[in-house]
Design a protein around this nucleic acid. Structure first.
Lengths: 158, 158
DNA sequence: AATCTATTGCAACTTAGTTGCATTTTTGAT
DNA sequence: ATCAAAAATGCAACTAAGTTGCAATAGATT
């Protein structure tokens, strides 16, 4: 593995978490750090260098580990699969938008403190560990891609 | 099929929607109407009379049709599968609670108008057709079932 | 009751995700 | 720098949710 003079962000993140820095973990973490929206395991695999392709199982194990370590968060999309995004302080918990046309998941603006409190106040007899707000419909791209309208409208319920 | 003097609620619902009243649709709709929480296709199948068991594909097609007709709503749970609940006026859109212990989805109190508006105001360039708020953690039962704690804590990420 | 259409069942398939085990890579001690 | 132990990865096989095409059947219409 190539040595870098200035260790990159991903390597630093793994070191701080006290977990070993393997090529596969660095590759997955780099993709997540550069992503502008949450990614599914499939999305991550598509972005991995096809030459040094990382096994599907390994990607699942990595995102699962990163989640357990609090490095990433998961978002369950309307399509049924999990999406992952960095859980850094400059990217706090926020609602997401699922496009039912192209299937992407986009980030929306974070909740205000009062909104968050209203939601957290709700459950009386529960131990809450996760709040997820997902709003779905068509994203700007799909909304204006008139040529795709028929295809989108013909789709099934999933 | 047996004739009833007072046609039941399910039959009436299907008639009003102008879709044919088959045994299978009545059976599925009855289960959803009597449910106290959203059910997955698997849950519905478990409650169907095993003798007259309805094919898996048929159940998927029925819930999909009921959703298209606006008779039911779907909720995507933390476990990744879809759950269905009646979309009647006395059961308006509301947040849900996913128990990560037993996997059930429970209904929470509906949003106030101002809460709903704050959420709906968010997306600028999107065409919104669904808002989903899912809060997860442990339900009251799982929280106090101390004997199950180890099992719950040992579970993987899904 | 006969017929036509809509619905259901079946089998085979797809996709997301998981598990056990053998192989390879990291780590840490020397 | 080397080497053993521990951890991580890859592979193959599996599970579970959901889908598709087509033949068989039930419901609605006359």
């Amino acid at each position: 593995m190539k040595k870098e003079r200035h260790p990159n962000k991903a390597a630093h993140t793994l070191k701080s978490a006290g977990i070993s820095t393997t090529q596969q973990r660095l590759a997955v973490l780099n993709i997540l750090q550069q992503a502008s929206r949450p990614l599914s395991v499939g999305d991550i695999r598509k972005q991995l260098d096809p030459a040094s392709s990382v096994n599907k199982v390994t990607v699942y194990r990595i995102v699962s580990l990163l989640k357990k370590q609090g490095i990433v968060r998961d978002i369950s999309s309307a399509s049924g699969s999990l999406y992952f995004e960095m859980a850094t302080s400059d990217h706090p918990v926020h609602p997401h938008f699922n496009c039912t046309g192209c299937g992407t998941v986009n980030c929306l603006t974070p909740l205000t403190f009062s909104q968050a409190r209203q939601l957290l106040n709700q459950p009386d007899n529960f131990s809450v560990d996760h709040i997820e707000i997902n709003i779905s419909g068509l994203c700007n791209g799909c909304l204006h891609a008139t040529k795709l309208q028929n295809k989108i409208l013909k789709k099934g319920h999933r």
